[in-house]
Amino acid sequence: MLIRKAVRYRLEPLPEQGPLLSRAVGCVRFVWIALSLSRRAIWSTAAASCPTETWPST
């Protein structure tokens, strides 16, 4: 049985921490999107080069 749990946090940064936190989250989002696009491109080229024939049933 798989049990999934979630935890939710609320951040309340100080006024001088807000811009730094926003910038850090923006950088993480940029890297996440870049890696997702890269992974999708690799999978699409790998899928195109894989044979699609099925194995004969015995």
Results as ranks from 00 to 15, higher is better:
Ala34Tyr: 03
Ala46Val: 06
Arg29Gly: 04
Lys5Gly: 10
Phe30Leu: 12
Arg40Ser: 08
Gly18Ser: 07
Trp55Pro: 12
Gln17Thr: 02
Trp32Thr: 14
Val25Pro: 02
Thr54Glu: 12
Ile3Thr: 15
Arg23Glu: 09
Glu53Asp: 09
Arg23Ser: 05
Ala41Tyr: 09
Cys50Thr: 14
Val28Thr: 06
Thr54Lys: 12
Val31Ala: 10
Ala41Thr: 07
Leu20Asp: 11
Leu37Arg: 14
Pro19Leu: 01
Thr45Gln: 12
Arg4Gln: 14
Ala6Gly: 07
Pro13Gln: 06
Ser57Asn: 13
Thr54Tyr: 05
Pro51Gln: 07
Arg4Phe: 00
Pro15Phe: 00
Leu37Trp: 05
Val7Ala: 12
Leu20His: 13
Ile3Cys: 08
Leu35Gln: 11
Pro15Val: 01
Leu11Ala: 13
Pro13Thr: 03
Arg40Trp: 03
Glu53Asn: 08
Arg40Ala: 12
Ser44Glu: 08
Trp32Glu: 15
Tyr9Leu: 11
Thr58Pro: 14
Leu20Ile: 06
Ser49Met: 07
Lys5Tyr: 01
Leu21Trp: 05
Val25Glu: 08
Thr54Asp: 06
Ile33Trp: 05
Ser57Gln: 13
Thr52Trp: 02
Gln17Leu: 00
Leu37Phe: 07
Val7Asp: 12
Val25Asn: 07
Ile42Ser: 07
Glu12Pro: 02
Arg8Asp: 09
Arg23Tyr: 00
Lys5Arg: 15
Ala47Leu: 04
Ile42Lys: 13
Arg29Val: 00
Trp32Phe: 07
Arg39Phe: 00
Tyr9Gln: 12
Ser38Phe: 03
Arg39Ser: 04
Lys5Phe: 00
Val31Lys: 12
Ala34Asp: 04
Pro51Phe: 00
Arg10Pro: 01
Gln17Met: 05
Arg23Asn: 08
Val7Glu: 14
Val31Asp: 10
Gln17Gly: 03
Arg40Ile: 00
Ala47Thr: 09
Gln17Tyr: 00
Leu11Cys: 06
Leu2Met: 11
Arg8Tyr: 02
Arg29Ile: 00
Lys5Gln: 10
Ser38His: 11
Trp32Gly: 05
Val25Gln: 14
Arg39Gly: 05
Pro51Ala: 04
Ile33Cys: 05
Leu11Trp: 06
Glu12Gly: 03
Ile33Gly: 05
Glu53His: 10
Leu20Asn: 11
Arg23Pro: 02
Gln17Ser: 04
Glu16Val: 05
Leu14Lys: 14
Ser44Leu: 06
Thr58Cys: 01
Thr58Arg: 15
Leu14Ala: 12
Ala6Phe: 01
Thr58Gln: 10
Phe30Asn: 15
Ala24Arg: 15
Gly18Lys: 15
Tyr9Ile: 07
Ala46Asp: 10
Trp55Phe: 03
Ala47Gly: 10
Tyr9His: 11
Ser44Pro: 02
Leu11Lys: 08
Val25Ser: 08
Pro15Ala: 04
Leu37Met: 09
Pro56Val: 02
Ser49Ala: 08
Arg10Gly: 01
Arg29Lys: 13
Glu53Leu: 04
Ala41Val: 02
Ser49Glu: 09
Arg10Met: 02
Ala47Gln: 13
Ala41Glu: 10
Ala24Pro: 03
Pro13Ile: 01
Ser49Ile: 02
Tyr9Trp: 11
Thr58Leu: 04
Arg10Trp: 00
Glu53Ala: 08
Pro13Ser: 05
Ala48Gln: 13
Ser49Pro: 03
Leu21Gly: 10
Arg40Gly: 04
Thr45Gly: 03
Ser22Pro: 02
